[in-house]
Each structure stands twice: as structure tokens, then as C-alpha cells.
Amino acid sequence: TTVVVGNKKYTFDNPEAAEKFAKKVAKKLGATVHKTNGTFKVK
């Protein structure tokens, strides 16, 4: 599962961990999490 934050990509074996990370980053940046085909995008 990939999490994309700006131009950085983070890969997780565990989708739950990926989602948690994405939400944490989004909260910090005041952004939102978008899920597309198993990829979480923070923007």
C-alpha cells in the first residue's frame, strides 16, 4: 500500500498502517486523505 505525500512516496505492507500514517500526516498538514486504487494521497 502506497501513501503519497506531495512528491514523496511511502510504502507499507499493511494497509491499516498506511491509512493511519496518511491520516496522521494529513492532520498535521491540515490536508485530506484521498484513496485511489489502494493508494492513499494526502493533499
Score class of each variant (00 low, 15 high):
42 V>P: 03
16 E>F: 11
16 E>G: 10
26 A>Q: 02
32 T>L: 06
34 H>W: 07
16 E>M: 13
16 E>I: 14
15 P>H: 10
5 V>K: 01
3 V>W: 01
40 F>H: 05
40 F>K: 03
13 D>R: 12
17 A>I: 13
31 A>Q: 05
41 K>N: 15
19 E>A: 07
19 E>D: 05
15 P>T: 10
43 K>H: 14
38 G>E: 06
40 F>G: 03
40 F>T: 04
29 L>C: 04
43 K>W: 14
22 A>N: 00
34 H>E: 15
30 G>P: 01
21 F>W: 13
21 F>I: 02
12 F>T: 00
24 K>W: 15
18 A>S: 02
12 F>K: 01
2 T>L: 14
30 G>E: 04
21 F>E: 01
31 A>G: 15
26 A>C: 02
3 V>D: 00
1 T>S: 11
39 T>H: 15
10 Y>Q: 01
43 K>C: 12
18 A>H: 00
43 K>N: 13
25 V>K: 04
36 T>A: 10
37 N>T: 05
33 V>C: 03
39 T>V: 15
20 K>M: 12
31 A>E: 04
14 N>E: 08
32 T>K: 09
25 V>Y: 04
33 V>N: 01
31 A>D: 03
12 F>P: 00
17 A>M: 12
23 K>R: 10
40 F>W: 14
15 P>V: 12
24 K>P: 00
8 K>C: 08
17 A>E: 12
27 K>R: 09
18 A>T: 01
24 K>N: 10
16 E>T: 13
17 A>K: 12
11 T>K: 13
36 T>F: 13
17 A>L: 12
5 V>T: 03
20 K>N: 12
34 H>N: 06
29 L>P: 02
1 T>Q: 06
11 T>G: 06
36 T>W: 09
23 K>H: 15
31 A>T: 07
16 E>L: 12
27 K>L: 12
31 A>F: 09
16 E>Q: 12
30 G>Q: 06
2 T>C: 07
30 G>F: 04
9 K>S: 13
21 F>P: 00
18 A>V: 00
28 K>E: 09
4 V>F: 13
32 T>Y: 07
8 K>R: 11
25 V>H: 03
9 K>E: 10
6 G>T: 04
9 K>N: 09
1 T>N: 08
1 T>P: 08
8 K>T: 08
30 G>K: 08
30 G>M: 05
2 T>K: 09
36 T>P: 02
35 K>Y: 15
5 V>H: 03
29 L>I: 11
4 V>W: 14
17 A>W: 10
4 V>H: 10
37 N>W: 04
6 G>A: 06
11 T>I: 13
20 K>D: 11
19 E>F: 13
37 N>D: 14
27 K>W: 07
12 F>E: 00
9 K>M: 11
14 N>S: 12
30 G>S: 05
38 G>Y: 04
3 V>E: 00
2 T>S: 10
28 K>R: 11
7 N>R: 12
42 V>G: 03
17 A>Y: 11
12 F>D: 00
16 E>S: 11
30 G>T: 03
19 E>H: 08
42 V>N: 02
29 L>K: 03
34 H>L: 13
6 G>K: 06
33 V>W: 05
8 K>I: 08
32 T>F: 06
24 K>G: 09
39 T>M: 15
20 K>W: 12
16 E>K: 13
40 F>M: 07
43 K>G: 15
39 T>R: 06
37 N>C: 04
10 Y>S: 01
39 T>Y: 13
5 V>S: 02
13 D>W: 10
35 K>H: 12
22 A>I: 02
24 K>C: 09
20 K>Y: 11
4 V>K: 07
28 K>M: 09
39 T>E: 15
43 K>V: 15
1 T>Y: 14
28 K>P: 03
34 H>K: 07
33 V>T: 03
38 G>F: 04
35 K>R: 09
1 T>W: 14
22 A>K: 01
37 N>L: 06
15 P>W: 09
24 K>S: 10
18 A>C: 02
38 G>P: 03
11 T>E: 10
14 N>R: 08
8 K>L: 09
36 T>D: 15
9 K>F: 12
34 H>M: 10
38 G>S: 06
42 V>A: 01
26 A>M: 02
7 N>P: 08
38 G>N: 09
32 T>M: 07
6 G>D: 05
34 H>V: 15
21 F>G: 00
6 G>R: 06
39 T>F: 12
20 K>S: 11
9 K>I: 14
10 Y>R: 03
23 K>I: 14
18 A>Y: 00
2 T>Q: 10
13 D>P: 14
4 V>T: 08
11 T>L: 13
43 K>P: 07
38 G>V: 03
17 A>V: 12
15 P>Q: 10
20 K>T: 11
26 A>H: 01
33 V>H: 03
36 T>R: 05
24 K>Y: 14
4 V>N: 06
3 V>G: 00
23 K>L: 14
4 V>R: 07
25 V>S: 03
26 A>K: 01
17 A>C: 06
5 V>M: 05
10 Y>K: 02
1 T>R: 06
21 F>A: 02
6 G>V: 05
22 A>Q: 01
42 V>M: 03
23 K>N: 15
38 G>I: 03
4 V>E: 14
7 N>L: 10
27 K>I: 09
5 V>R: 02
35 K>G: 05
29 L>W: 08
29 L>M: 11
7 N>D: 08
3 V>M: 01
2 T>I: 14
24 K>F: 14
30 G>I: 03
14 N>G: 07
3 V>K: 00
19 E>P: 01
6 G>W: 10
1 T>L: 06
34 H>I: 15
13 D>Q: 11
20 K>A: 13
2 T>A: 10
20 K>Q: 12
1 T>H: 09
42 V>E: 03
26 A>D: 01
27 K>M: 10
27 K>P: 01
6 G>Q: 05
4 V>I: 14
38 G>D: 08
36 T>G: 09
13 D>A: 13
14 N>T: 11
25 V>G: 00
43 K>I: 15
35 K>I: 12
42 V>D: 03
7 N>G: 07
42 V>S: 02
6 G>F: 14
37 N>R: 05
4 V>Q: 11
24 K>L: 11
8 K>P: 00
42 V>Y: 02
18 A>M: 01
3 V>R: 00
27 K>N: 09
31 A>I: 04
29 L>T: 06
17 A>Q: 10
40 F>E: 03
16 E>R: 12
6 G>M: 09
12 F>G: 00
22 A>G: 02
4 V>G: 03
11 T>A: 08
25 V>W: 09
38 G>W: 04
41 K>W: 15
39 T>N: 14
35 K>N: 09
29 L>D: 02
8 K>D: 05
37 N>I: 04
14 N>W: 07
8 K>W: 10
16 E>A: 13
25 V>A: 07
2 T>G: 05
10 Y>F: 12
15 P>F: 12
9 K>Y: 11
8 K>H: 12
27 K>D: 11
5 V>L: 06
43 K>R: 10
23 K>G: 08
9 K>H: 14
16 E>N: 12
23 K>C: 07
22 A>Y: 02
5 V>F: 05
9 K>P: 05
19 E>L: 13
5 V>D: 01
30 G>D: 05
22 A>S: 04
20 K>H: 10
27 K>G: 07
32 T>D: 05
33 V>Y: 06
18 A>G: 06
1 T>A: 14
10 Y>M: 04
27 K>Q: 11
42 V>W: 01
8 K>F: 10
23 K>T: 13
40 F>D: 03
11 T>S: 11
41 K>F: 15
11 T>H: 13
36 T>Y: 12
15 P>N: 08
26 A>T: 01
15 P>D: 10
34 H>T: 14
32 T>E: 08
18 A>P: 00
21 F>K: 01
22 A>V: 04
12 F>C: 05
16 E>Y: 13
14 N>A: 07
31 A>M: 14
13 D>N: 10
4 V>A: 07
3 V>C: 02
6 G>S: 05
8 K>N: 09
2 T>Y: 13
39 T>D: 15
28 K>T: 08
31 A>V: 08
32 T>R: 07
10 Y>D: 00
23 K>D: 13
42 V>H: 02
39 T>L: 09
41 K>M: 15
33 V>L: 06
30 G>W: 03
16 E>D: 11
21 F>R: 00
42 V>Q: 02
37 N>Y: 05
11 T>Q: 12
13 D>M: 11
36 T>I: 15
15 P>R: 08
12 F>I: 02
22 A>R: 01
3 V>H: 00
9 K>D: 06
11 T>W: 13
22 A>E: 01
43 K>S: 15
23 K>V: 14
1 T>K: 05
28 K>H: 09
23 K>A: 09
18 A>K: 00
7 N>Q: 10
37 N>K: 07
34 H>F: 11
41 K>P: 04
29 L>H: 06
17 A>G: 06
31 A>L: 14
27 K>A: 13
6 G>Y: 14
18 A>Q: 00
29 L>A: 04
12 F>Y: 04
20 K>I: 11
21 F>Y: 07
43 K>T: 15
32 T>G: 05
19 E>K: 07
25 V>P: 00
12 F>M: 03
